[in-house]
Protein backbone atom coordinates (compact mmCIF):
# COMPACT_ATOMS: atom_id res chain seq x y z
CA UNK A 1 0.00 0.00 0.00
CA UNK A 2 1.28 3.39 -0.97
CA UNK A 3 0.57 5.91 1.70
CA UNK A 4 -0.75 8.70 -0.44
CA UNK A 5 -2.96 6.45 -2.55
CA UNK A 6 -6.14 5.76 -0.62
CA UNK A 7 -7.94 4.00 -3.44
CA UNK A 8 -6.12 1.83 -5.96
CA UNK A 9 -8.13 0.36 -8.82
CA UNK A 10 -6.51 -1.97 -11.34
CA UNK A 11 -8.40 -3.46 -14.24
CA UNK A 12 -11.80 -3.27 -12.57
CA UNK A 13 -14.43 -5.10 -14.61
CA UNK A 14 -18.12 -5.36 -13.81
CA UNK A 15 -20.53 -7.21 -16.06
CA UNK A 16 -24.27 -7.68 -15.75
CA UNK A 17 -24.80 -10.57 -18.13
CA UNK A 18 -23.50 -9.33 -21.48
CA UNK A 19 -23.62 -5.71 -20.45
CA UNK A 20 -20.28 -4.27 -19.40
CA UNK A 21 -20.92 -1.58 -16.80
CA UNK A 22 -17.28 -0.97 -15.87
CA UNK A 23 -14.84 -1.79 -18.64
CA UNK A 24 -11.37 -2.38 -17.16
CA UNK A 25 -11.07 0.80 -15.11
CA UNK A 26 -7.66 1.88 -13.82
CA UNK A 27 -7.20 4.80 -11.45
CA UNK A 28 -5.86 5.90 -8.07
CA UNK A 29 -7.33 8.39 -5.62
CA UNK A 30 -4.89 10.37 -3.48
CA UNK A 31 -5.38 10.88 0.21
CA UNK A 32 -7.14 14.16 0.97
CA UNK A 33 -8.18 15.07 -2.56
CA UNK A 34 -11.61 15.76 -4.00
CA UNK A 35 -11.96 13.20 -6.73
CA UNK A 36 -14.78 13.65 -9.23
CA UNK A 37 -16.38 10.89 -11.26
CA UNK A 38 -18.09 12.40 -14.27
CA UNK A 39 -20.37 10.84 -16.77
CA UNK A 40 -23.82 10.78 -18.25
CA UNK A 41 -26.53 8.64 -16.68
CA UNK A 42 -25.71 5.00 -17.27
CA UNK A 43 -21.99 5.61 -17.80
CA UNK A 44 -21.14 3.30 -14.90
CA UNK A 45 -20.42 5.84 -12.15
CA UNK A 46 -22.79 4.39 -9.59
CA UNK A 47 -21.73 0.83 -10.39
CA UNK A 48 -18.08 1.70 -9.73
CA UNK A 49 -18.97 3.46 -6.51
CA UNK A 50 -21.00 0.50 -5.30
CA UNK A 51 -18.03 -1.77 -5.83
CA UNK A 52 -15.73 0.57 -3.91
CA UNK A 53 -18.20 0.79 -1.00
CA UNK A 54 -18.75 -2.97 -0.88
CA UNK A 55 -22.37 -2.84 -2.01
CA UNK A 56 -21.54 -4.78 -5.13
CA UNK A 57 -18.91 -7.35 -6.07
CA UNK A 58 -16.65 -6.72 -9.08
CA UNK A 59 -16.44 -9.36 -11.82
CA UNK A 60 -12.66 -9.04 -11.77
CA UNK A 61 -9.85 -6.62 -11.02
CA UNK A 62 -7.64 -5.62 -8.10
CA UNK A 63 -9.17 -3.01 -5.83
CA UNK A 64 -7.86 -1.56 -2.60
CA UNK A 65 -9.82 0.94 -0.53
CA UNK A 66 -8.28 2.66 2.51
CA UNK A 67 -5.51 0.09 2.35
CA UNK A 68 -7.78 -2.96 2.38
CA UNK A 69 -8.66 -5.46 -0.32
CA UNK A 70 -12.36 -5.25 -1.27
CA UNK A 71 -12.59 -9.03 -1.70
CA UNK A 72 -11.23 -9.87 1.73
CA UNK A 73 -11.85 -7.01 4.11
CA UNK A 74 -15.30 -5.70 3.23
CA UNK A 75 -16.31 -4.96 6.81
CA UNK A 76 -13.00 -3.27 7.68
CA UNK A 77 -13.41 -1.01 4.67
CA UNK A 78 -16.96 -0.19 5.76
CA UNK A 79 -15.67 1.02 9.10
CA UNK A 80 -13.40 3.49 7.29
CA UNK A 81 -15.75 4.95 4.74
CA UNK A 82 -18.87 7.08 4.63
CA UNK A 83 -21.51 6.89 1.94
CA UNK A 84 -24.33 9.05 0.73
CA UNK A 85 -26.50 7.51 -1.92
CA UNK A 86 -28.37 9.04 -4.81
CA UNK A 87 -31.61 8.13 -3.11
CA UNK A 88 -32.03 10.12 0.04
CA UNK A 89 -31.48 7.58 2.76
CA UNK A 90 -31.83 8.84 6.29
CA UNK A 91 -34.82 7.54 8.24
CA UNK A 92 -37.60 9.99 7.48
CA UNK A 93 -39.67 8.90 10.46
CA UNK A 94 -36.85 9.62 12.88
CA UNK A 95 -35.78 13.08 13.98
CA UNK A 96 -32.48 14.65 12.97
CA UNK A 97 -31.00 13.89 16.39
CA UNK A 98 -32.25 10.30 16.29
CA UNK A 99 -30.70 9.71 12.88
CA UNK A 100 -27.35 10.99 14.10
CA UNK A 101 -27.63 8.80 17.18
CA UNK A 102 -28.54 5.72 15.14
CA UNK A 103 -25.69 5.98 12.67
CA UNK A 104 -23.23 7.15 15.31
CA UNK A 105 -24.16 4.07 17.30
CA UNK A 106 -23.78 1.74 14.33
CA UNK A 107 -20.26 3.12 13.78
CA UNK A 108 -19.51 2.38 17.42
CA UNK A 109 -19.23 5.92 18.75
CA UNK A 110 -19.75 6.34 22.47
CA UNK A 111 -22.82 8.13 23.79
CA UNK A 112 -20.71 11.06 24.86
CA UNK A 113 -19.03 11.29 21.49
CA UNK A 114 -22.38 11.13 19.68
CA UNK A 115 -23.70 13.96 21.78
CA UNK A 116 -20.66 16.09 21.06
CA UNK A 117 -20.77 15.44 17.32
CA UNK A 118 -24.55 15.98 17.12
CA UNK A 119 -24.12 19.40 18.65
CA UNK A 120 -21.32 20.16 16.21
CA UNK A 121 -23.36 19.11 13.18
CA UNK A 122 -26.41 21.09 14.30
CA UNK A 123 -24.28 24.19 14.87
CA UNK A 124 -22.47 23.85 11.58
CA UNK A 125 -25.75 23.61 9.69
CA UNK A 126 -27.32 26.31 11.85
CA UNK A 127 -30.27 24.14 12.85
CA UNK A 128 -29.78 23.85 16.62
CA UNK A 129 -33.49 24.40 17.21
CA UNK A 130 -34.55 21.68 14.77
CA UNK A 131 -32.84 18.67 16.33
CA UNK A 132 -36.17 17.10 17.23
CA UNK A 133 -37.86 17.65 13.89
CA UNK A 134 -38.71 14.62 11.80
CA UNK A 135 -36.36 14.38 8.85
CA UNK A 136 -39.30 13.62 6.57
CA UNK A 137 -40.74 17.06 7.18
CA UNK A 138 -37.67 18.93 5.90
CA UNK A 139 -37.06 20.33 2.41
CA UNK A 140 -34.81 18.25 0.14
CA UNK A 141 -31.83 20.59 0.29
CA UNK A 142 -31.73 20.35 4.07
CA UNK A 143 -32.08 16.62 4.01
CA UNK A 144 -29.07 16.36 1.67
CA UNK A 145 -26.92 18.50 3.93
CA UNK A 146 -27.93 16.49 6.99
CA UNK A 147 -27.35 13.23 5.12
CA UNK A 148 -23.84 14.37 4.25
CA UNK A 149 -23.09 15.32 7.84
CA UNK A 150 -24.35 11.94 9.02
CA UNK A 151 -22.27 10.16 6.37
CA UNK A 152 -19.10 11.63 7.91
CA UNK A 153 -20.23 11.49 11.55
CA UNK A 154 -17.58 8.83 12.30
CA UNK A 155 -14.74 10.77 10.61
CA UNK A 156 -14.12 8.26 7.84
CA UNK A 157 -10.98 8.22 5.74
CA UNK A 158 -13.06 8.53 2.57
CA UNK A 159 -16.60 9.60 1.91
CA UNK A 160 -18.41 8.47 -1.23
CA UNK A 161 -21.06 10.81 -2.57
CA UNK A 162 -23.30 9.51 -5.31
CA UNK A 163 -24.78 12.50 -7.13
CA UNK A 164 -25.35 14.27 -3.84
CA UNK A 165 -26.76 17.44 -5.32
CA UNK A 166 -29.23 16.10 -7.84
CA UNK A 167 -32.55 17.86 -7.61
CA UNK A 168 -31.53 20.76 -5.36
CA UNK A 169 -31.36 24.46 -6.24
CA UNK A 170 -28.07 26.20 -7.15
CA UNK A 171 -27.77 28.04 -3.82
CA UNK A 172 -28.14 24.84 -1.83
CA UNK A 173 -25.67 23.17 -4.16
CA UNK A 174 -23.16 25.91 -3.41
CA UNK A 175 -23.74 25.45 0.34
CA UNK A 176 -23.37 21.74 -0.07
CA UNK A 177 -19.99 22.21 -1.71
CA UNK A 178 -18.94 24.38 1.21
CA UNK A 179 -19.63 21.39 3.44
CA UNK A 180 -17.58 19.19 1.12
CA UNK A 181 -14.64 21.60 1.22
CA UNK A 182 -14.89 21.73 4.97
CA UNK A 183 -14.74 17.95 5.20
CA UNK A 184 -11.77 17.89 2.83
CA UNK A 185 -10.02 20.41 5.06
CA UNK A 186 -10.46 17.97 7.93
CA UNK A 187 -8.53 15.41 5.88
CA UNK A 188 -11.43 13.36 4.58
CA UNK A 189 -10.92 12.18 1.02
CA UNK A 190 -13.95 12.97 -1.13
CA UNK A 191 -15.07 10.68 -3.92
CA UNK A 192 -17.99 12.29 -5.70
CA UNK A 193 -19.99 11.38 -8.79
CA UNK A 194 -21.91 14.02 -10.65
CA UNK A 195 -23.32 14.88 -14.01
CA UNK A 196 -23.23 18.61 -13.32
CA UNK A 197 -20.21 19.82 -15.24
CA UNK A 198 -19.87 23.01 -13.20
CA UNK A 199 -19.34 20.87 -10.13
CA UNK A 200 -16.46 19.19 -11.89
CA UNK A 201 -14.59 22.48 -11.64
CA UNK A 202 -14.66 22.17 -7.85
CA UNK A 203 -12.75 18.87 -7.89
CA UNK A 204 -8.99 18.44 -7.62
CA UNK A 205 -9.05 15.76 -10.27
CA UNK A 206 -11.82 14.31 -12.39
CA UNK A 207 -12.26 11.07 -14.27
CA UNK A 208 -14.63 11.03 -17.21
CA UNK A 209 -16.61 7.88 -17.92
CA UNK A 210 -18.40 7.12 -21.15
CA UNK A 211 -20.19 3.81 -21.65
CA UNK A 212 -18.29 2.10 -18.85
CA UNK A 213 -14.85 3.19 -20.08
CA UNK A 214 -12.66 5.83 -18.50
CA UNK A 215 -11.61 8.17 -21.28
CA UNK A 216 -9.87 10.92 -19.34
CA UNK A 217 -8.36 11.52 -15.90
CA UNK A 218 -6.74 14.81 -14.93
CA UNK A 219 -7.29 18.08 -13.10
CA UNK A 220 -9.99 20.33 -14.58
CA UNK A 221 -7.38 22.98 -15.37
CA UNK A 222 -5.24 20.53 -17.34
CA UNK A 223 -8.23 19.15 -19.19
CA UNK A 224 -9.47 22.58 -20.26
CA UNK A 225 -5.96 23.45 -21.41
CA UNK A 226 -5.46 20.19 -23.30
CA UNK A 227 -8.75 20.45 -25.15
CA UNK A 228 -8.64 24.23 -25.44
CA UNK A 229 -12.06 24.74 -23.90
CA UNK A 230 -13.50 27.44 -21.66
CA UNK A 231 -15.25 25.12 -19.25
CA UNK A 232 -15.66 21.48 -18.27
CA UNK A 233 -18.99 21.19 -20.03
CA UNK A 234 -17.36 21.76 -23.41
CA UNK A 235 -14.55 19.37 -22.52
CA UNK A 236 -17.07 16.70 -21.66
CA UNK A 237 -19.11 17.19 -24.82
CA UNK A 238 -15.97 16.99 -26.92
CA UNK A 239 -14.74 13.84 -25.21
CA UNK A 240 -18.08 12.07 -25.12
CA UNK A 241 -18.85 12.84 -28.73
CA UNK A 242 -15.40 11.73 -29.90
CA UNK A 243 -15.71 8.54 -27.97
CA UNK A 244 -19.04 7.66 -29.46
CA UNK A 245 -17.98 8.56 -32.96
CA UNK A 246 -14.66 6.78 -33.11
CA UNK A 247 -15.03 3.76 -30.90
CA UNK A 248 -18.59 2.78 -30.50
CA UNK A 249 -19.94 3.34 -34.00
CA UNK A 250 -17.77 1.04 -36.12
CA UNK A 251 -17.47 -1.83 -33.64
CA UNK A 252 -20.86 -2.28 -32.14
CA UNK A 253 -23.35 -1.11 -34.67
Amino acid sequence: MTNDKIIIVKDMLKKFGDFVANDHLNFDVHRGEIFGFLGANGAGKTTAMKILTGLSKPSSGEITVAGYDVYKSGDTIKRNIGYMSQKFSLYEDLTIAENIRLFGGIYGLSRKEIKKRSAKILTQLGIEDMANKLVGSLPLGWKQKIAFSVAIVHDPAIVFLDEPTSGVDPITRRQFWDLIYDAAQRGITIFVTTHYMDEAEYCDRVAILVDGKMIALDSPQQMKKAYKKQNMNDVFVELARGKRFFEKAPNNK
Binding site: K87, I106, Y107
Partner: peptide
Protein backbone atom coordinates in the same frame (compact mmCIF):
# COMPACT_ATOMS: atom_id res chain seq x y z
CA UNK B 1 -37.31 0.36 -1.62
CA UNK B 2 -36.71 3.74 0.01
CA UNK B 3 -32.94 3.26 0.18
CA UNK B 4 -32.23 3.22 3.92
CA UNK B 5 -31.27 -0.42 3.55
CA UNK B 6 -28.43 0.54 1.23
CA UNK B 7 -27.25 3.07 3.78
CA UNK B 8 -27.28 0.39 6.47
CA UNK B 9 -25.43 -2.00 4.16
CA UNK B 10 -22.43 0.32 3.75
CA UNK B 11 -22.02 0.49 7.52
CA UNK B 12 -19.96 -2.09 9.41
CA UNK B 13 -23.07 -3.36 11.23
Amino acid sequence: EIGTMEQINVTPI
